[in-house]
Amino acid sequence: MSLKLTDVSYTVDRKRLLSDINVSIQPGKINSFIGPNGAGKTTLLRVASGALSALGVTLNSIPLTEFALDDRARKVACLNQSSELEFPFKCFEVLRLGRIPHRTSRRYDERIVEEVINRLGLDGLADRIYTTMSGGEKQRVQIGRILCQVWDNIDSAFVFFDEPTAELDLAHQLVFFDVIKMLAAKGASVSLVLHDINLASRFSDDLVLLKSGRILAMGHPREVVTKENIRLTFSVEAEVQNLFCRPTIQAISVVAD
């Protein structure tokens, strides 16, 4: 069981966004894609999750494009950076949207929504109108929607989040990482796009460092988050220290090319 990208390239309007990407996304692991703006992190996430179709992406050795959409949606869930929802849904109705591909009974879905609400501490928001919430609250609800989508088949799920913590306060960031650690422990594969290298280093099993659509380094955070790699990709001079047995960086200055 794994999601593999083999020699994947992706081009839009003759512009190469990804080149020669080889990544294997394993169950039970948390992967993070890091890199500077425009490195192709989001594109990689979208290609891997099937939102953009590209050759060379396989799920359990079957090309991702060959899955029926609803079948795929029962295995692969993905949260994009920003949500476009402009209709005054109630929070629990947004959560229930995650159940659409499953066609399970309403009662069953309501129980799952209830469990996710409890797990994420969304109790206070459940009856609120989505469009009236703050950015962070909306994000927590969207994260909940993704959990609802995979809640009853976590062990075989592939879950993708693009910048999930950008709008979350410190406490809710920790809640989020706690939840994805639980997902991974139960066998799910979790992939994240993160801007914050220290968060990525601390909570990921594997990091994929991208620059200009290519993978520059890949592996355990200790191998990836090094002074040299940071200088090469971000053009930033940084101090690297160990915290929680993981490399932590402090950017010092911008390197002139």
Binding site: D70, R72, L85
Partner: peptide, 13 residues
């Protein structure tokens, strides 16, 4: 209503 990409991820053709 969530967006086209989101709808695809929820299995909508």
């Amino acid at each position: 209503t969530l967006g086209e990409t989101e709808a695809i991820h929820l299995g909508v053709s």
